[in-house]
Design a protein around this nucleic acid. Structure first.
Lengths: 156, 156
DNA sequence: GGCGATTTGATTGTGCGCAATATTCTTGTG
DNA sequence: CACAAGAATATTGCGCACAATCAAATCGCC
C-alpha cells in the first residue's frame, strides 16, 4: 500500500512533528504555564517568579548562583527577574559581607506572608487528576531532567 | 521523628519545588531547548523556527492560524517569528486570494532544501537513549498535552 | 605582597510567548 | 448596497531565556 509500491518496511517520517518528544515537552510546558498564569495572577506572580518563591520558602537566604542551579536558569534570566520581584517588595538583594561577589536573596515580610496564599495552588492545579499518576509521571520526568542537566554542554 | 513529635502522618510540604510536576516540565523544556540550540544553529534555526519548519515540511501552505493551533502558540508569537524566517529566505507570507484575512505561509526553495540537512537532527538528539523508552514517554506526554489543550481557558 | 586564573553577578542584544488591543476583511441581514 | 457582527491576523507592551561579554572580587601559586 506504500506510495512507491515496495515491500520495504514503512519508514515513518523522522521529522514528523508529533513524533518529536522535544515538541511534546515544549507544548506541555507552554500549556502548563498558560494554566498557571491566571491562578498565580491572583498572587501577583508570574510562573518563574512563583518558582523562585518556592525555593525561598524552602530555605531563605540563597545566592543568585544557587537559585540558578536549582531552577536550571542562568544569571541573565534571574537577575532582572529578581529586580522585578524586589520592586514588588517580595525579596531583598544584598551583597554577602564575607564574599562581596555573592548576592544573597532574602524574603521580605510580604514575601513570607505570601506563602499562606500560595499553599492552595498545587491542589488547585492538580484537582481532578489522579494523584498517583501525576506522582509517577513526576518521578519519570525528574529522572529525565537529571540526565538532561548532566548532558548540558558547559554545566555537567 | 517529626519535629513536633506527633504521631500524625508526615505531611510533606505541598510547595516543595521538587514535588511540582509543572517545574519538571518547565526545567525539561528549557534543558531540551538548550541541547537543541547548538545543533539547530548549524541549520541557522532557533528551536521554535525548527518546529515551524517541521509543520511546513509535513505539508506546505499553511495559514498562520493553523500553524498556531498545531504548535499551541498564538499569533503574537508566530507573526514576528515568521517575519524573521521570511527575512532568512526560508518562507514566504502571502495573503490568501479567496479570503484576504488569511495569510498563507509557504516554503521557498531554500526552505525545502533545508529539509535534507535536518533529517539527521532527531537521530542526533536521541543518540544513546533507549528508543522504546522515549517512544513510551512521548505517548504519555502526548496524551497529557491533549488534556492540557482541552483545559485551556479560551481555546478548549 | 604580587599577579594571573577563576568565580560570581551584571549587562547587552536577540528571540520567543502571551494578553490586550487594533485592523482588516467577510458574512449575514435587510 | 449599507451596516452590524464576527473572524483572522497584526501590533504593542511586558516578561522571560540565553549567548556573549564585562567588571569586580577571590583564590593560588609563587
Amino acid at each position: 500500500m506504500s506510495a512507491a509500491g515496495l515491500d520495504a518496511p514503512v519508514e515513518a517520517d523522522p521529522l514528523a512533528l508529533d513524533r518529536q518528544l522535544c515538541f511534546q515537552f515544549y507544548a506541555a510546558s507552554n500549556l502548563i504555564n498558560r494554566l498557571y498564569a491566571p491562578v498565580l495572577r491572583e498572587l501577583g506572580l508570574t510562573y518563574p517568579q512563583y518558582l523562585v518563591m518556592l525555593v525561598l520558602w524552602e530555605g531563605d537566604g540563597v545566592s543568585v548562583g544557587a537559585l540558578g542551579r536549582r531552577l536550571h536558569l542562568d544569571s541573565g534570566t534571574i537577575t532582572p527577574l529578581l529586580k522585578r520581584m524586589e520592586a514588588l517588595g517580595l525579596v531583598r538583594r544584598e551583597r554577602d559581607r564575607s564574599d562581596e561577589r555573592r548576592v544573597q536573596v532574602r524574603l521580605t515580610e510580604a514575601g513570607r506572608d505570601l506563602r499562606a496564599r500560595a499553599v492552595s495552588v498545587p491542589a488547585t492545579m492538580s484537582r481532578g487528576r489522579d494523584a498517583g499518576e501525576l506522582d509517577a509521571l513526576r518521578e519519570t520526568i525528574s529522572g529525565l531532567v537529571g540526565l538532561l542537566a548532566e548532558a548540558q554542554p558547559a554545566r555537567g
